[in-house]
Amino acid sequence: MSLPPPRLTDRRLVRDLVWVVILKLIVITALWWGFVREFRVPVDHDAMAVQLAAPLPAKQQTHTDGEPHGQ
């Protein structure tokens, strides 16, 4: 029985795994590009203060107090 050269399957496996990793990076980048990139949320201490503490001016309050807010 002639044996296959050692590592033949290993080499193929490594090649497959490299492709998987490359595809992963491409898909993750595509997801970011498609769904996240345009919605960058710049947060500094002023934005954080608005989020936590300072009440919005009256004209921007569109929700009914007492219920969880909608956007």
Binding site: W32, F39, V41, M48
Partner: peptide, 9 residues
């Protein structure tokens, strides 16, 4: 991306 206020805090 999803937890920007958390990340700042």
């Amino acid at each position: 991306t999803n937890w920007a206020y958390y990340s700042h805090y």
